[in-house]
Design a protein around this nucleic acid. Structure first.
Lengths: 209, 209, 209, 209
DNA sequence: AATGAATGAGCTTTCATTCAT
DNA sequence: AATGAATGAAAGCTCATTCAT
């Protein structure tokens, strides 16, 4: 499953987006040529520009689609958890598992769409911003419920997102750890400690892979 | 002080590197044209290629110079501290202060030189790798001295580097917090907690800016 | 008639090839810029590189096209002749007449595409190689039929090709003789003598042009 | 002995010329950069332009030096021969032997300095022109002495030069025949026949290699 | 005589985008 | 909706030549 959607797309627009993920993951944004994208998508220049006004627009559409889909899935995956802290922990585990299965999506989302001039920088934040907000929301809830002490949840959320990002990036560039999800327990412990929770006291629910 | 060296360079090679930091910070690596770099450096195409065999080589030289210089300064800044944990804490504070003063260096180092094909990816890691190693070294020493409990210091180092990276990136893209070094106390607390140290028990030395 | 095809080409690819012959003939291979070629062809840079992957590839395509076309025409022109020796003689006359009418093709084929690094050198040989083989074939047939004595036909073919080349090159550079085909009778006599045939005994058929 | 002079030159000017032969033989005229020439000559840009006003001028000096030297040596080598025809035959043999020992000189003289815009074309002829004149002179003498019949000696000279050129070029590009001078007897026979002389009736003097 | 950093016009090649079909 | 030839600005890079030392 290397496509953002996870299935072979049947309409041209989605085939273009799927091809774009592949090419951008392999070459980086700037070196990803429209020609190669349409070659892999099995369509034509004209078709590309019929569906998207520009390469940049298409990239932003790609970004938005991937971000939204990912966030939605995280939220779904986390619904059954009993407490805010359980939800964040589960969310982090889910993210590691998901990126592990969609290496190229991870690469594009976390590595290849950065630093290409302001326009994309700004639009790139959403995934981290939304993740941050998700985490901050749960942390705030945890504070409200007395699960953790009062603290700068905004900063903590940033720390957690940065930690996740770093761990995944290392995996992308070095292949370690293999599998990626192997770090989940230790990472969860470290992050829980960072908000003053004793990992030993925190019993996660049993969940599927 | 926008130049990597912090002073107006007088030889051509350094003027090119200084100009490159500026242009790459403003436009990103791919969009940073040799033409604009030499325009700002006040030199010529031929001169550029007399000093560097290619744009890529020049970028790697830039990266190496900046990384080495930064790491060296961190090490110097941290020498006087009494314990390993004091040293990491001081190092983080120093990094925030330094990047705060060299915004463009931070941007280039942490944002703009990623995702441009393997060659630069691989060479890009050093700054994070070295930072990671520095931190891991101190954490290991802290474990050895009984300052903190035994744990996966490699993962913790990654978490700390990721946290730093995230905090700085947010500042680069949003300007918050202002000044950047304002987060230092809270960040230190969060990171110390993550290794099981009570921030309240940890008394930093008094230090200059 | 300065175009390889002899007629104004209507498709872009052929217009590029025709323009290339002109420019290469005037300036030599290295000094023949893609810019000037496309200017004369009335097309654009992008168009050039849409039709050919590189300037070198295009030059080789040009070479191949011209060689094949020329060889084919020589073979056709020579079909009606009664004996091997008549065929070679007619072929030489035909070549002189053809180059006489296509000065620039001659220049490119025989002068301008030599000595530019192995790649083109190797591909350049075909026209001489093929001509050599054509001549050697007829000489071998002449030996088999007892028209001439047994001898190193391979060397003789080389001598004849060299003689032709030299005569044409002088004409290209000095304009002498005018017309080029004026040397045909004397050249034929000299070459026939070189294989031991008395030119006076050799009665060519009557032919056009 | 790969240098035009046959010995390691001791003054800068000659070291440049020697290096130029090497580089031009290896890369062709256009691709032979001044930088590589001075690198091999062990001197500097400034030095090059102190000794020669331009690359082109230097090339012409090279050409002239090589041509004059070669022609002079041919004339010396041929002095002892009894008849005009003996002299041409000896000259051809000497040329083959000489080029055989100075492969790069042959390459530069016969292959690499052709087809690079009018200026060099014109200056390039001398070697062939002078060779032609040498041969024509002897042929005229042979006619005057009744050694051969009256004929267009100018054309015959061209044919002979072309034959030589072709044979040497094939050797340069294919390495055949090895050694080059192996073709001398057959070539002499063919050329003698081309002026109506029975090779069997022609007894060359004994000479050193 | 010699050095080598500097120059800048020019090179081949790329690529997002357009448009007639 | 789709095609693909065409466009042209701009890219990275080369190289003969100059000049202060």
């Amino acid at each position: 499953m290397a496509t953002p959607s996870g299935v072979e797309a049947s309409n041209t627009r989605d085939r273009i987006l799927d091809a774009a993920v592949e090419v951008i993951a392999e070459r980086g944004y700037s070196a990803a040529g429209v020609q190669e994208i349409i070659d892999r998508a099995g369509t034509s220049k004209g078709s590309f520009y019929f569906h998207f006004p520009s390469k940049e627009t298409m990239t932003m559409a790609l970004l938005e689609q991937m971000s939204n889909r990912l966030i939605k899935r995280v939220q779904e995956a986390v619904q059954g958890e009993p407490t805010p802290l359980h939800r964040v922990a589960a969310g982090i585990e889910f993210l590691l598992a998901t990126f592990s299965r969609h290496r190229k999506v991870a690469q594009v989302l976390l590595v290849n769409l950065m630093g290409h001039g302001r326009t994309i920088d700004r639009r790139f934040l959403p995934i981290r911003e939304k993740l941050s907000e998700l985490i901050k929301g749960e942390l705030d809830a945890a504070v409200a419920q007395g699960q953790i002490e009062c603290q700068d949840t905004s900063l903590v959320a940033a720390v957690w997102v940065g930690a996740l990002h770093e761990v995944i990036m290392r995996w992308l560039l070095t292949g370690q750890p293999s599998p990626l999800s192997g770090v989940a327990p230790e990472l969860r412990s470290t992050l829980l400690r960072s908000v003053g929770v004793d990992p030993a006291m925190f019993q996660p629910l049993q969940r599927r892979a």
